[in-house]
C-alpha cells in the first residue's frame, strides 16, 4: 500500500488486536464486578475472576506491540514524520497520566489542607504515619539515582553503543525493582490498613498507583534493555527507549511530589483545622 504512496505517513495494515483488546476489557470488567459482589464467574474463586480478562489484555499488548516493533525494525515504516507522531503520542499519553494523578493529589490536598468539613486534623487522629526520612527517603535516593542511570543509558544509545546502553538500562530497571520491593516492605509494616479512613485511602491509592506506574515503567525498561541487546536502537531513532525514559522521568517526578507532600511536609507534626 505504501509502495505507491507519495506521503511519509504509515498506513497501518488491518489488525485484530484492537477489537481483541476491547472485548478483553469487557471480560475483565464483568469479572471484576462479579468478584466484588461474590457472584460465580467461570467457577473461579475471589480475585481470580480478574484473571481471564487480564491475561487476554496482556496477550493483546504483547501481540500488538510485537507488531509495532516489527514495523519499525523489519518494515522500516517509521519515517521521520511517523517518528515525530509517535513521540507526540507518548508525550500526550504522559500528560493524561499526569491528570490522573492530579485526581489523587486533589483528594489528598482536599483533606490534608482542611477543605473537608469531616477532617479535623491532619494526619487524622489514631494514624501513626511513616517516617519520611527512613524508607521513603531511601526510595527517593533510589529513584533519583535511576534517573541518572537512565540518562547514562540514553547517552550510550545516542553514541550508538547499544550493548553498553543495555547494561545501564538493566541497572535502571534493577533500581526500579528495588524501589518496588521497599515499597511492598513498607506497606507490610505500615501501622494502618487500607480501610482505616481517609488517610490510608489517599496514601495507598496515591502511592499504590505510583507503584503500579513504576512496575509498568520497569517492564518497559526491561523490554528496551532486551531490544538494546539486539541492537535495535540507532543514535537518531530509538523511540521505544526514548518513551521509556520519558515515562521513567514522569514516574520519578510523581514520586518527588509524593515524598515532599504526602510523606514529608504534610506528615508530622499534626495540624488542626
Amino acid at each position: 500500500m505504501s509502495a505507491q504512496a507519495k506521503h511519509p505517513y504509515h498506513m497501518v495494515n488491518p489488525s485484530p488486536w484492537p477489537a481483541m483488546g476491547a472485548f478483553s476489557a469487557l471480560f475483565l470488567a464483568i469479572g471484576a464486578v462479579f468478584y466484588f459482589h461474590e457472584e460465580s464467574f467461570l467457577g473461579l474463586p475471589g480475585a481470580y475472576k480478574l484473571l481471564p480478562g487480564l491475561s487476554l489484555i496482556i496477550l493483546t499488548m504483547l501481540l500488538w506491540w510485537r507488531d509495532v516493533i516489527k514495523e519499525s525494525v523489519n518494515e522500516d515504516v517509521h519515517t521521520d514524520e511517523v517518528s515525530t507522531g509517535l513521540r507526540m503520542g507518548m508525550v500526550l499519553f504522559i500528560a493524561s497520566e499526569v491528570m490522573f494523578f492530579v485526581a489523587f493529589f486533589w483528594a489528598f490536598f482536599h483533606h490534608s489542607l482542611g477543605f473537608s468539613a469531616s477532617t479535623l486534623q491532619w494526619p487524622p487522629a489514631g494514624i501513626e504515619v511513616l517516617d519520611a526520612w527512613h524508607l521513603p527517603f531511601y526510595n527517593t535516593v533510589i529513584l533519583l539515582t535511576s534517573g541518572v542511570t537512565v540518562s547514562r543509558a540514553h547517552l550510550y544509545v545516542e553514541a550508538g553503543l547499544n550493548q553498553k546502553a543495555a547494561k545501564w538500562i538493566w541497572i535502571t530497571a534493577g533500581l526500579g525493582a528495588m524501589f518496588l520491593a521497599l515499597q511492598v516492605f513498607e506497606y507490610g509494616h505500615a501501622a494502618f490498613g487500607l480501610s482505616d479512613g481517609i488517610y490510608p485511602s489517599t496514601f495507598y491509592l496515591a502511592t499504590g498507583f505510583h507503584g503500579f506506574h513504576v512496575f509498568v515503567g520497569t517492564t518497559f525498561l526491561v523490554v528496551c534493555a532486551m531490544r538494546a541487546q539486539k541492537n535495535q536502537f540507532s543514535p537518531h531513532k530509538h523511540i521505544g527507549f526514548q518513551s521509556a525514559a520519558w515515562y521513567w522521568h514522569f514516574v520519578d517526578v510523581v514520586w518527588l511530589f509524593l515524598f515532599v507532600w504526602v510523606y514529608w511536609l504534610l506528615g508530622l507534626p499534626v495540624r488542626t483545622f
Partner: peptide
C-alpha cells in the same frame, strides 16, 4: 464501594463534596 476506602465517606473522615469537585 468495594475495598473499604473512605474518600467520599464522612464516617472515615472523607468528604462527599470531594466527588463533586472532581
Amino acid at each position: 464501594r468495594n475495598f473499604g476506602t473512605a474518600f467520599f465517606d464522612p464516617r472515615g473522615g472523607g468528604d462527599p463534596l470531594l466527588w463533586q469537585h472532581l
